[in-house]
């Protein structure tokens, strides 16, 4: 029940790659761990790779939005990368547009986005 997803650190960026279908508690644990690690490692950015996820429901969607909001409060930026087309279509239909969340097509573009100045990355 207390599965935890590893959080990697590259310089001042935290990297999370979600590789399997998550239980709700694991999702909540990840949110908590990320908040702690942003402060503990003075991270400037967080990249969450969801390219392996076949579905994202409102629970995971909410976690992504919350992590983005928390990181903003802690002066870091979050980029969600690799969302699949079918997942994106479904999320929009579900009514979740993740307004405050930065996104990128893949890990490389996500990291590049974090390296650019804040003004253009928030687009």
């Amino acid at each position: 029940m207390s599965d935890r997803i590893p959080i990697l650190r590259i310089g001042d960026i935290l990297l999370v790659s979600v590789q399997f279908d998550l239980e709700d508690q694991t999702v909540l644990n990840l949110q908590e761990d990320l908040a702690e690690q942003i402060v503990a490692k003075s991270a400037q950015g967080v990249v969450i790779d969801i390219s392996a996820l076949e579905i994202v429901d409102s629970f995971v969607g909410r976690m992504l939005a919350t992590v983005a909001a928390i990181s903003r409060v802690l002066d870091a930026r979050t980029v969600v990368v690799g969302m699949r087309p079918a997942v994106a279509i479904t999320l929009v239909e579900l009514g979740l547009s993740l307004g405050g969340v930065s996104t990128a097509l893949d890990l490389e573009k996500g990291l590049a986005k974090l390296r650019r100045p804040a003004s253009s990355a928030s687009q």
Partner: peptide, 9 residues
């Protein structure tokens, strides 16, 4: 694929 994803969600 899209319909699968919608149904599972």
């Amino acid at each position: 694929l899209v319909d699968q994803t919608k149904m599972i969600t």
